[in-house]
Write a protein that binds this DNA or RNA. Sequence first.
DNA 1: CGTAGGTTTGACTGATCTCAAGTTTGGTGG
DNA 2: CCACCAAACTTGAGATCAGTCAAACCTACG
Lengths: 265, 265
Amino acid sequence: MLETYTDFGFYCFIDRLVDEENMTANDNDAFTRVIHKLERLAPLEQADRDAIRALPFRIKTAPPNHYLVKEGAAATDCCVLLTGYVCRHKTTSSGDRQIVSFHMPGDILDLQHLLLSRADHNLETITEATFALVPAEDLRRVAQQRPLLAEALWRDTLIDASIFREWVLNVGRRDAKSRIAHMLCEFAARREKAGLGPPERFNLPMTQEQIADATGLTSVHVNRMLFELAADGVIVRDKRQVEITDWSRMCRVADFNAAYLHEAA
Amino acid sequence: MLETYTDFGFYCFIDRLVDEENMTANDNDAFTRVIHKLERLAPLEQADRDAIRALPFRIKTAPPNHYLVKEGAAATDCCVLLTGYVCRHKTTSSGDRQIVSFHMPGDILDLQHLLLSRADHNLETITEATFALVPAEDLRRVAQQRPLLAEALWRDTLIDASIFREWVLNVGRRDAKSRIAHMLCEFAARREKAGLGPPERFNLPMTQEQIADATGLTSVHVNRMLFELAADGVIVRDKRQVEITDWSRMCRVADFNAAYLHEAA
DNA sequence: CGTAGGTTTGACTGATCTCAAGTTTGGTGG
DNA sequence: CCACCAAACTTGAGATCAGTCAAACCTACG
């Protein structure tokens, strides 16, 4: 059912994605998940929930390493990630890539497209992913009409910004081992909050090269540091599976304090 | 007129700042500047302008190196910077500091306090600074009642987030010389957009150590790189004064593209 | 069972840090 | 106006963390 796309023009990649035929039964699921998330961000009224359910949307699927949005593209849609993992990244003119965030099911992506007309970064799938596409202008209209909804969405973007600030600190001032450990802690914590499983044991969706691009390191060094973390006894690895054997010691190594996630994310 | 405060409890620093007696004449100026900024972010109606002018606020002054907000503090106010320069920063448990943003007159600081209850970073003056303090709950109420105003403020926070993403890239993937050059370009560009003077020649308010903390380097290395930038002929320095002699070459060295500032900031 | 992408390992290089000693600057008080 | 002082800046030499290059080794998948 999935086709693989590898070659695209610069704009409107999403139009070439696969429409999921068999998703209609799950339409409600998609927004139930979002509403659940927004409820945690602000106290919604019934009218807010109804307004969300009334939004037009399309369900799409994309294969791994597929660009959803490219830097400079016109911003037309917001999407809710339903399954799979996605990252945002930017590149220098010399071609070095920096991943600026990871996203997991339940995350609302590119909410900034509501109010900024051009994408300032790329959005790329890490694994195969499905998501609900909502036209930015419709969501914007609803946000204008429903103050509580606007507040929930705004709050989500503010938490995003807080995470970026922590990443600046992570990449700017922590050594390689702590950086990687911090990234693992954040991934585990957000994963748990999103209801995707326990933080002590999980499968990493990203390659070591992607970890390197998120932490400002090289994949070779990431590999060595993962071995050191294992040698230190704070994690046990098996392929992409990671077990954090001692969460409090891991947090110390990672210098991780979840306060910046603001009880949500 | 200015007293110097150096020792504070952990919360509510702002209460101990000096109230400016002679600022009443300038009350309108304070909000005129903000309204002007918000007009660029969204098309306001007269009622929006009136709502802003009706907000309660206090004008305060702080000396250099003065904390306005500390990480973990309850978030009670938003402030508009009227004069002077300010930075936001975070620290690792080992005490290393990372500056995550610089702010200049006209910037609205800590807008995230509208919706996040605790500060996740410090806010500290670089130079002596004056600002207007607005209780977060009043601003929040106005944002709920005036959708266009909410949109302008939200957009401002989204641009903030875009700048953080660029900083992650800057600190994560550029070499020392480019990082510093990039920081200088951003400072020059934002300064110009804020109507504070031409981008080709300006006085840096921050020390080389603060530049180091913003770029994830040491002050020693910042010093050497500033000399190299001068030796390369892209800048001329005299004390804290910087002249960018060839803007397009400087942008190339810095890998600077102002798109991420989204025509505002 | 062949291939490509991902991971692992080793040897060497180099950008940036560290430490430590000057030097300059700007502000303050005499 | 000058002397002094602390903070900021400058410079050098040596140390180190992380990068580079290159080869091998997995392992999932067609």
